[in-house]
């Protein structure tokens, strides 16, 4: 079991000794059980840190913001940033290192293992509790969660309220870290691509209808993009409103800008946005599930990414997020790679 006190102690030590400039972790928010990200600079503030199955966010996203902030500072603090990562988050960090976006020296990794559990799906939990508010949640050894509500304790099977991705998790402990808390034990997971089965049984027409229906809902709020640690491009090709025009952008470069997709949320443009995003995440998405979680319209975005993850595994035996030195999926090939899809 990960002991929260151990985590606090480590964080305290790092801040006190000045090893890190600050630590990104989780703290309890004001909206029920859902935590908020905590940015802790003072050693005494480590008391705010929490660690439990509600800690769903992928905090590595904030490293992207940190990199930008640092780049704009005149005399930047060169010390690393401490970040608390779960198994999935650590794999995101591996990809950021692999893509040389983050420098290993710029980050101090506090790995926490989900051990045999994982994190909650708040929507599933709300459904199970039928309107009651959870006050505290703990994982028990027999694959159950003990949930405290105003009505007292209830025991719920982990499968019922665990996030879908946790049920399919390949490694629910960090694969890269400076300090590891908890055991490197793996949850007995379901089929790795179980959530795709239903979707894959559909015919082409049914799939089209399904995605048309789903993507037509999209209001292009770009929450999925904002939360994704892989969506760190300054300029998104799928979006014409945030072109990175800087002081040294030449007239020629400005003239080269292309409107690949219209901003208006209509079927064709939504498809361009979501498909470009899915393709750009092929071999990069580590399935933290944040895009789907933050979608205000419940578009099952994880399905798209999971499908590509499966294709990468089956066609090219490529698994993402375990080795920062492995070449990326799209920039490498092996002689034995299949060619039967090239006609």
């Amino acid at each position: 079991m990960v002991n929260l006190e151990d985590l606090k102690n480590e964080a305290h030590k790092l801040l006190k000794e000045g090893t890190v400039k600050y630590i990104i972790g989780y703290e309890r928010g004001t909206n029920g059980l859902l935590p908020i990200p905590a940015f802790i600079k003072n050693p005494e503030d480590v008391e705010r840190l929490i660690w439990d199955p509600t800690c769903v966010f992928n905090l590595t996203r904030f490293l992207v913001d940190e990199k930008r902030r640092k780049a704009s500072e005149k005399e930047p603090d060169e010390r690393p940033v401490g970040v608390i990562v779960k198994g999935c988050d650590s794999r995101a960090l591996v990809v950021l290192l692999q893509e040389k976006f983050i420098n290993r020296d710029d980050v101090y990794i506090l790995g926490v293992s989900c051990e045999e559990a994982g994190v909650l799906d708040e929507k599933k939990l709300a459904k199970t509790l039928k309107g009651k508010k959870a006050k505290n949640i703990e994982f028990t050894k027999n694959d159950n969660f003990v949930v405290m509500t105003e009505d007292g304790k209830t025991e719920i099977s982990a499968k019922e309220i665990l996030a879908e991705r946790c049920l399919e998790c390949k490694a629910n402990f960090p694969v890269i870290y400076d300090i590891l808390l908890g055991e490197k034990v793996k949850r007995k997971s379901d089929k790795p691509f179980g959530s795709l089965e239903k979707f894959e049984s559909l015919s082409k027409e049914e799939r089209w209808t399904f995605w048309k229906e789903q993507l037509d809902k999209c209001i292009r709020c770009y929450a999925c993009r904002s939360v994704c640690p892989m969506c760190y491009c300054d300029e998104c090709v799928a979006d014409t409103i945030n072109f990175a025009v800087t002081a040294d952008t030449t007239a020629e470069e400005k003239a080269q800008k292309i409107k690949w997709a219209e901003k208006s949320p209509v079927t064709s443009e939504n498809f361009v946005y979501h498909l470009v995003r899915a393709i750009h995440l092929a071999g990069r998405c580590i399935d933290c599930g944040e895009c789907e979680r933050v979608c205000p319209l419940d578009i099952p975005l994880r399905l798209l990414n999971k499908k590509l993850e499966k294709e990468a595994k089956e066609l090219f035996d490529y698994e993402v997020g375990f080795d920062p030195d492995q070449p990326s999926l799209v920039s490498s090939f092996k002689d034995e790679d299949p060619e039967d899809f090239i006609r």
Partner: peptide, 8 residues
């Protein structure tokens, strides 16, 4: 301006 140096 757009290059992030990923090296792909």
């Amino acid at each position: 301006n757009l290059c992030t140096g990923c090296g792909m």
